[in-house]
Design a protein around this nucleic acid. Structure first.
Lengths: 241, 241
DNA sequence: CGTATTTTTGAAGCGATTCAATGGACGTGG
DNA sequence: CCACGTCCATTGAATCGCTTCAAAAATACG
């Protein structure tokens, strides 16, 4: 496989690859293959044998779980530089979730055993993976706590703030969350219904906090979202914007 | 530090240490120190700088988070062979949760940098940690999905089933969950209130599914708990017990 | 044995869901 | 370019599961 840094130099900073020397990087890339997905394609589905491990190079994927009775839950979105399906490197298991591309997406994939062998030889790689997984556990713990203790409006506010971190782009008039998101998906991220999300967003729109257009959300007053998420009194924030 | 396997031979099977050779094990133990806690003692508190990483040798700890307004959420219980605070090995962060002993507890602790150095030299150790964290992420994802999609009774059923796996002991008349648990704690594990837990447990008690005594829960009909957790019709299970 | 903590239970209230119906946006094909 | 079907969003009304509050009962503990 050709070195992908020429085309995607930011990849060198991915948490997975950070700090690795060139020799190791070359061997890592030699062991992997690139894969390409169209928007809507499924990379792997929940329940399939977990064969391959991936690094996102470009694009975006949605990782979700379905319940026994068909309800969906969005676990997270995956953006360039992030990894998925580490479970494949740990032997004979099934993918615990489904990964679908939400836009044209490029990945590097490794066979589970191949990646396991790399980690078993190169301690630096394992440390990087440990670091990534630790961050992810913390994030899941936070979301768990939110879901257990906070009301819907607050959870949606937090959901949007998280999306800003992952896919926020400064534009005139605010920060654009640069991905198509239905009310249904927002609901699946925050553990509520599409109806509640709709009501909340229309309220926020009349309050001037957000503007939505073509399934894209423009956050006009992030500080007010923070105020809602943290339950701060609005007026504490009006002067420091 | 003396080899702790004499006193706790099962420790050799801990996911953290599994498959490691004796030489490495010796070095690992040489770098750590044992620590002892009484029931109720705090090992570390949320927000403190994350200095040390731990392996539970004996006893039990509760890992919990508090929200800004003081509500508690129980993230998980930690039993012998499990690790906690891997975040300490990844530099300059704070403990994201509080760990308290719920019974007399023995641990091995390592300085964060020391453990980082071990992982950076010994790839097998990193692989073990990756495996542990992967399992834990899956568990948190499952709990997140449950909280987002399932009703309170089902969540409490799942909570008890999880506790059975961690601290279940076969006794005559069923499986005893061998730890003191208030209604409040069960509520904090499952994202509900102590009142709802109380109502559900009394109902289950009249149904003959559980018996509670001195804050201990005896599960008399685990298959019926499974039926509730999975929403199976009861009568499918009556003949296969 | 008395005080503190935990548990139970009823009643009221509410936040969020559910259901149903309407309206709008978008893309395709006639 | 309009018609049509599909998908998504909005909104009102009804309902409900769960929480909240309050008070009493039970249990733990020094």
């Amino acid at each position: 496989m050709a070195e992908p840094f020429d085309e995607y130099p930011e990849l060198r900073l991915a948490p997975l690859l950070k700090g690795l020397d060139n020799d190791l990087l070359a061997r890592i890339f030699a062991a992997g293959t690139t894969e390409t997905l169209q928007a809507g394609d499924t990379l792997f589905a929940q329940g399939e044998p977990a064969k391959r491990f991936y690094l996102v190079v470009d694009g975006r994927l949605r990782l979700s779980q379905v319940t026994a009775n068909g309800q969906q839950v969005v676990i997270r979105f995956l953006t360039p530089g992030q990894i998925l399906a580490i479970v494949a490197a740990l032997g004979h298991e099934e993918y615990p979730a489904t990964a679908e591309a939400v836009e044209p997406t490029k990945l590097i994939g490794w066979g589970g055993e191949a990646w396991h062998a790399l980690m078993a030889r190169e301690a630096a790689l394992g440390v990087n993976v440990v670091s990534i997984l630790t961050t992810r556990i913390q994030e899941m713990q936070d979301r768990f706590r939110e879901l257990a203790t906070e009301n819907v409006e607050r959870r949606v506010a937090r959901g949007l703030l998280r999306l800003i971190r992952q896919a926020g782009r400064r534009v005139e008039g605010g920060v654009l969350i640069d991905m198509q998101l239905t009310r249904q998906e927002l609901a699946e991220m925050t553990g509520t219904t599409l109806y509640s999300v709709s009501r909340i967003l229309t309220q926020w729109e009349t309050d001037g906090i957000v503007r939505t257009d073509k399934r894209r959300v423009l956050v006009r007053a992030g500080h007010r979202l923070v105020a809602i998420a943290e339950d701060l009194p609005e007026d504490l924030l009006t002067d420091d914007r």
